[in-house]
Amino acid sequence: MRIGVTVFPGSNCDRDAMHGIERAGAVPVELWHADADLKGVDAVVVPGGFSYGDYLRPGAIARFAKVMGPLEEFANSGGPVLGVCNGFQVLTEAHLLPGALLRNSNMRFICDRVAVRVENTGTPWTSLFEPGHELTLPVAHNEGNYFADERTLAELEDEGRVVLRYLENPNGSANDIAGICSEGRNVVGLMPHPERASDPLLGSGEGLRVFESMLRFAGARA
């Protein structure tokens, strides 16, 4: 199984994501922002960082990078895509996920470990978790305050599309949302960083299950 990791100028979690993918037992494939195709990968991770310096708005410029064309096609045809942190911001800017990530309500960059609960185990990236499983993941963001209009929030809740929820809301996020998925469940955006908790050497291996979930999902589908 091959999982692509997009690399924009300013991405900084791409190596961590590739390391996590490798530890989970898949082959990581670097997808350069100027690439015109996805090199035939089975899934894509859009990693964290500060793509294009976060200029204008986080994700606003990355969203129009060349690699995003084929990525949007892939996502819209059901391909599994995971956006982490800045990757989540890129996916909302690209309208692959609803809503937007606003400045943290306390106006501070938050770098911490936070407890989250897995609310939806029906996505490719959470299929190995038990519903309601609680884990601790690193967060590092300035714009993690999830916003969507009331109708969209109600839709997300009614359709069970909240994937991760904070136990203690660090950033003002609506409904304590830490991660959501698309209508088709294949596109997932998370503010916390599973790849930064994918190796006990980094202090925790709890996040590895996100990548292992993808492998199991692919195995079940094959």
């Binding site: 204008l56 708005r57 606003a60 800017e93 937007a100 606003l102 916003f147």
Partner: peptide, 8 residues
């Protein structure tokens, strides 16, 4: 398409 995010 770029300068504003009409969602917010």
């Amino acid at each position: 398409r770029l300068l504003a995010n009409p969602t917010v």
